[in-house]
Amino acid sequence: MNRRDAIKAVSVIMGGTVVGANAFLSGCSVERDERVNALFMESDVALLDEIGDIIIPTTDTPGAKAVGIGGFMAMMVLDCYEEKDQKAFTDGLAKLKADFEKDHGDSFDEAPRETRTAFLNALDKEQREYGKANEKDPGAVPHYFKLMKELTLLGYFTSEVGCTQARRYVETPGRYEACIDYKKGDKAWAT
């Protein structure tokens, strides 16, 4: 139950005698875009969830959005990245949003999945070319989409879902066997 529903329920129980009930309810009707941390707003995290869901979609296992990948990325960028990488990531996220809206006239999260996938595939090609052009420069800042992909993979495959559903998992393994035959289509083992 959200705050608005709770206030309505209390108003009904009290017969609408709460002074200023309309003011309370109207205060809840506006969608607020609040900060998640010093770098990201809730809308940024929601966009990162959508991007992660294109990178690792839901199939027979839950996708990246199901593990809250946007929040994970926001936390990792704030807590673990150097300032120049933080700037590359946040500027890149803003660029992704603006470029998508300019190219498609719609926001990323409202566009059809095929359109979003094609856009991110083109962005992936761009980041690979950027990486090749800057591979000899040790001080080059990584392309923002490469950072997004890396964080999506890291967050997903270290989550409970990634370890227990996307990969084979034995909570209490037996002895170590160095050579186990692999059959095509087998999931990788979680560690």
Rank of each mutant, 00 (worst) to 15 (best):
F89K: 08
E110K: 14
P62T: 07
D106C: 08
D103M: 14
L47D: 13
C28H: 10
D44T: 06
V10F: 03
T158Q: 11
F145M: 15
P57D: 02
D85P: 00
M14N: 12
M41E: 10
E129W: 08
S26D: 14
L120F: 03
I56K: 10
A94S: 13
L96T: 09
A190N: 13
L25E: 02
T191A: 07
I69S: 04
D60Q: 05
E171W: 10
V30N: 13
T17E: 14
V161Y: 08
R116W: 06
A21Y: 08
L147K: 14
P173F: 10
K183P: 03
F100K: 08
E34Y: 13
K132A: 01
Y130T: 00
E50C: 06
F145P: 03
D124H: 13
N22P: 00
L25I: 06
D53T: 12
K132L: 04
G52Y: 11
A94F: 03
L78E: 15
K132N: 02
P112F: 01
E126S: 10
E50S: 09
T90I: 13
D53Y: 11
F145H: 11
L78I: 07
E31M: 12
K95Q: 05
F24G: 04
G139M: 00
A66V: 09
Y176K: 15
D49A: 02
K183F: 04
L48I: 07
I13C: 08
L78W: 02
Y176C: 11
C80I: 04
P57H: 07
G52D: 04
A94Q: 11
R35E: 14
G139Y: 00
D99P: 11
G105H: 13
E50T: 03
G105N: 11
A166L: 09
N2I: 02
N37P: 03
H104Y: 15
D124V: 00
K65H: 01
E150P: 00
K187T: 09
Q86M: 00
I180H: 14
K97Y: 01
A140T: 00
R4I: 06
T164V: 05
P138T: 01
A66M: 10
E110N: 14
M41V: 06
T117S: 15
D124I: 03
D53N: 15
A178R: 04
E34M: 09
V18D: 02
E34K: 09
Y176Q: 15
T117Y: 10
S43F: 10
L154D: 04
